[in-house]
Structure formats: structure tokens, C-alpha cells
Computed example of a mutant assay.
Amino acid sequence: MVLSTLFKKAAHSSVVRAVMATTFCVALITSPIAQANQAQSEPAPQAETLRALLANIQTLAGRFEQHIYENEEKVEVMQGIFALQRPSQLYWETESPDESVLVADGETVWYYNPFIEQVSLFAQSQTMASNPLLVLLESDAWDGFYIQFDQGRWIIDGQDEAQGQQLVLRFNSANLLVEMELSDAYGQRSVFMLSDLQENQPIAPKRFEFIVPDGVDIDDQRDY
């Protein structure tokens, strides 16, 4: 939700939405997720099928269009570009209506807002803790989520600490991830439509490095 308005109460909400940013979504990884008991665990065959689909994605890059809803009322549409590399790296740049950049490098999530000339830093493990976007990037983050396949969509529901959060994934006939929907218990929902996709193509390591521009304020919210 990061994994964009993943990842301003806005800076923190973006991280949750992405992935993202809020998608990617979106920061990502090794977070302590509550363990689901056997009664809550996802149906094994469906979970393994989804795991296999996601395992085919080592890198993914393209464009996104994000539709943001609050209590089912559309409040904003955002567009930009993204790149992710499993297991823990994400680049998410919003181009319109406002510019921002989110970079997750495996340890830190950097959220840069050029309008206010500020970059906020979040511990990646804490930012996406108990968030269903984890399953996109972290192959071991499946405990605590209930997974089912319904009408061509993969529905991932959070349990325990992630209760009320839901991630919906849709793949096309070529098994490319083309749409994500992330919602929470507070009536916020983001729908991400992905296009111009390039799967498993090399991505330069510097894409996931953030260099703080001169003169920019640093808001370090990492909790060591």
C-alpha cells in the first residue's frame, strides 16, 4: 500500500498505499508478521499457485495509474512509473498531479516531496509490517494472510495484526500482473492499473539508490 498518495499525513499514507506507496506496490520485507494458526492458514493449493506466479517475477517495471477512493468516493487519480526487484527493492515515481519519489532499498524507505523540499526516511521493516503487499516482494511473508482465487482475481486478506487489509491481484492471459487493489479497514482503497510492463529485464542497481539533493530537509522517522 511498498510497497504513492507505497509508500503529508501524506508521506506516511503514501507508503502504506504503495507499494507502493503505497504498491508496491511498495518497503518491504523481513517485518515481524503475526503467525496465523492452522485454522486461519490459507488454502494450500491456491496459495502455492499464487506463490508460483509471483516467483516468476524477479523484476518488473512499467507505468501505473492509481485511483484513490475514500469510502467509495474517488478522490484522486495519480500517474507515474515504477520498478521493483524482488525480494526488497522498489522505485515508485509519481509524475502527476504532484511529483514525488519513493525508493525502498531493502533497509530504508525514502519518500521525497520536491514541492516542500523534504525527504522522509522510514525503516523498511516497520513501514510494511503486516501489510499484504509483502507477498509481492517477500516469498516468506505468507503467514498471517488468507489467500483465495475468485472470478479471475487473487484475494489476499490480512489476519491478526493485518486484519481489515486486503490486496487483490489480477494477471492477464500471459500471466503478467496488470492490476492491484489495496484496501484497509478505514475505507481507503487504491486501484493500480499497470501498463507498458517489462518483466525480468535487468534494472540498474542505482535505480534503487536515493541520493538526497542539496538543500533538502531530512525527516528521519526510523526507530532504532
Rank of each mutant, 00 (worst) to 15 (best):
Q40K: 04
K8G: 03
S4D: 10
V19Y: 00
A52Y: 01
F149Y: 15
Y69D: 01
L102S: 13
S14R: 07
Q38R: 10
E72T: 07
A21C: 06
I211Y: 05
I33L: 07
I68P: 00
A129E: 08
L134V: 04
N37T: 12
S173D: 15
Q221W: 10
A104N: 09
D219W: 09
Y111R: 15
F192V: 10
N37Q: 11
N131Y: 07
S96G: 02
L134I: 03
Q188H: 05
L6D: 15
D143V: 05
Y146E: 11
P202T: 01
D223N: 11
I33M: 06
Q201G: 06
M1I: 11
Q38P: 01
G164H: 02
I155N: 11
V216P: 01
A174Q: 13
G152Q: 07
F149P: 02
E72N: 15
D219R: 15
S190I: 11
D217S: 14
I68M: 10
N56A: 12
S173M: 08
V135P: 08
N113L: 13
V103T: 04
E93Q: 15
Q40T: 05
V216D: 00
M78Y: 06
V135E: 05
K206W: 12
D105L: 01
T59L: 05
D196P: 07
W142P: 02
P205N: 14
Q221C: 00
H12W: 13
Y146G: 00
A36S: 13
A55D: 15
E70W: 03
W142Q: 01
A83F: 01
V103D: 06
M180G: 13
Q188V: 03
Y111S: 13
Y112M: 06
S96A: 13
I211M: 05
F64S: 02
Y111H: 12
N37G: 04
G62K: 05
A162H: 03
Q40H: 06
D160A: 15
L84R: 06
R207G: 04
A27G: 12
A104M: 05
L136I: 11
I57P: 02
A10Y: 06
Q118L: 07
A11V: 10
N172F: 01
V168C: 07
A185V: 00
P132C: 04
Q40D: 13
A44E: 15
G152H: 08
F171R: 01
F208G: 05
I218R: 12
T30G: 08
Y91S: 02
A10S: 09
D217M: 06
S88L: 07
Q163D: 09
N131T: 13
V26R: 01
L167C: 10
L54Q: 09
E117N: 14
W142E: 08
S14E: 12
V178F: 06
R189H: 02
L137Q: 06
L176W: 14
E93G: 01
G106D: 02
Q166M: 10
A11H: 08
D217V: 12
E65K: 12
C25Y: 03
F145N: 05
K74S: 06
M193E: 03
S88I: 04
P132D: 00
N37P: 00
A21N: 14
D157F: 03
P202M: 03
E179I: 01
D98A: 14
G152C: 02
G144I: 11
A34Y: 06
S139C: 04
L121R: 15
N172Y: 05
